[in-house]
């Protein structure tokens, strides 16, 4: 089977999420990549070095500069004449483009796969991760999005892909990129962080969130996350949100501080290797999934913990 992987990048480097997708694709067959963007020579060169990669198709055109689905989808569809499957990371970028590709190919997409059981059978979470479905597709061409935390990342070195330019498909003319506001952070990116310290509504304010969570995260070299309640209350920005409707993470260690553990939140972090919970309510659902729990006042515990580490 020839599989195509859409490479997510920021114009300069390949995003980590792509590496897990390459691993999933390699379980299906020969792996080719598509790098679409503007001025993406460096990205293509980096992509060609990913272990296990064959051809790297490069589409360099202003129409792909901001990965607008209306422009990227026809490009991927064109390449599907020679491929049996296309895989995207289940990131906001991948989730935006993949279903459009599936519709244009008249196939049903398989979202957010956790494992490849065979060429046509996959597992995926439903109901906020409260059930795992095994699904088999009847479609000849497969369009799949991959949950990054469910697959090992492919090595970034050792590959020797051949770079090949592909015909561009132009601008659809129905959408225009206006601009973006990217939250800046010195800390590790959430979805790839080994350790995550996450805060909930119990922190009470944005000031307290930063005063308590940030120093602990810095001590541990951790990424900072938040529950939806903390984000909705304005204590932390949107892209900190861990959960069904935010980011899905699976770090080595997840420290949940002042988070009760609603099912929507658990859906985003319950595959973490070790979960540590600090909460004053000893009946909070978070303790049912936590490997280590400490019941008490976070305003006392967190500063003490930060100091003693």
């Amino acid at each position: 089977m020839k599989t195509l992987v859409w490479v997510e990048h920021d114009g300069a480097t390949v995003k980590d999420a792509t590496l897990a997708v390459v691993t999933a694709a390699s379980q299906l067959g020969e792996v080719h990549l598509i790098v679409a963007g503007q001025g993406v020579d460096a990205v293509a060169a980096e992509a060609a070095k990913i272990a296990g990669v064959g051809k790297v198709h490069v589409a360099d055109d202003a129409a792909y500069a901001h990965a607008l689905a209306e422009n990227v989808a026809p490009l991927v569809v064109q390449l599907m004449a020679d491929h049996d499957a296309v895989l995207f990371p289940a990131t906001s970028g991948g989730k935006n483009i993949a279903p459009r590709v599936a519709a244009l190919l008249d196939v049903m997409q398989i979202s957010d796969i956790l494992s490849v059981e065979s060429e046509d059978t996959f597992t995926r979470p439903i109901y906020a991760g409260n059930a795992i479905a095994t699904v088999q597709t009847k479609d000849a061409k497969k369009v799949i999005t991959v949950r990054g935390t469910a697959f090992e990342k492919a090595a970034t070195e050792g590959g020797s892909g051949t770079i090949e330019a592909v015909a561009t498909t132009g601008d659809s003319g129905v959408s225009t990129y206006v601009g973006s506001e990217i939250a800046t952070s010195e800390r590790p990116e959430l979805t790839s962080a080994k350790i995550i310290v996450s805060g909930g509504r119990a922190l009470g304010s944005g000031e307290q969130f930063h005063a308590l969570i940030d120093p602990l995260a810095d001590k541990l070299g951790a990424g900072v996350g938040a529950s939806r309640a903390a984000v909705d209350a304005g204590y932390a920005p949107n892209d900190y949100q861990v959960g069904q409707t935010g980011k899905i993470v699976a770090p080595e260690v997840y420290v949940a501080i002042g988070i009760s553990g609603a099912i929507q939140h658990l859906a985003g972090m319950k595959d973490s290797k070790t979960i540590i919970a600090i909460n004053k309510d000893e009946d909070a659902p978070i303790f049912q999934v936590a490997d280590l729990g400490l019941v008490g006042d976070l305003f006392k515990i967190v500063p003490e913990l930060t100091e003693k580490l």
Binding site: T134, Q136, K270, F287, L294
Partner: peptide
């Protein structure tokens, strides 16, 4: 439908953890 659901199972349960007494 293009997809057939072969089965639906509960996710693996996490084993119960321990509660620690204090920060130390």
């Amino acid at each position: 439908p293009r997809l057939t659901t072969l089965k639906v199972v509960e996710p693996a349960k996490r084993s119960a953890g321990v509660k620690v007494a204090d920060v130390d």
